[in-house]
Simulated scan of single mutants.
Amino acid sequence: MYNGIGLSTPRGSGTNGHVQRNWALVKPRQKEQTYKNEQDLTNLDAVTHRQPNQEILDHERKRKIELKCAEFADILEEQGFSQEAINNKVGNYRKLLMGQGGKLEPPVNQWGRVS
């Protein structure tokens, strides 16, 4: 028996038990293959490439700002500033970063120089 097909044992059947495929029921092949045209490909591309979620981008920007603030607080703490002074300076630094729209790089002009 092969994959559940054929005799369980060829003994007494008068055959050797060899299983063959029945070619009488072969389905005809498709003569024409339909391919996607340019319009279908652009539609599929538009579906798979979505714009990023703005809330996720804002959250990531805020995380980067808080990381910069934490690093700044550590530097001030190592320099021996009081906790109140650290909180004030970090608060001002956070406002500065938020005022730039969350951009952590300084603004540059058309030649790539810091303006």
Rank of each mutant, 00 (worst) to 15 (best):
H49K: 07
R50S: 10
R50H: 12
R50A: 07
Q51I: 09
Q51K: 12
P52H: 02
P52C: 02
N53P: 03
N53C: 08
Q54F: 03
Q54H: 04
I56D: 08
I56E: 09
L57M: 07
L57W: 03
H59E: 14
E60L: 13
E60H: 13
E60A: 15
R61Q: 06
R61E: 05
K62E: 13
K62D: 15
K62M: 14
R63I: 11
R63L: 13
R63F: 11
K64T: 06
K64I: 09
K64M: 14
I65L: 00
I65V: 03
I65T: 00
E66M: 07
E66W: 05
L67W: 07
L67F: 10
K68C: 13
K68A: 15
C69V: 05
A70P: 00
E71C: 02
F72D: 00
F72S: 01
A73H: 02
A73Q: 01
A73Y: 03
A73N: 04
D74P: 06
D74I: 00
D74T: 00
I75H: 14
I75P: 01
I75T: 11
L76P: 00
L76F: 02
E77T: 13
E78Q: 15
Q79K: 13
Q79V: 04
Q79A: 12
G80D: 06
F81E: 07
S82V: 01
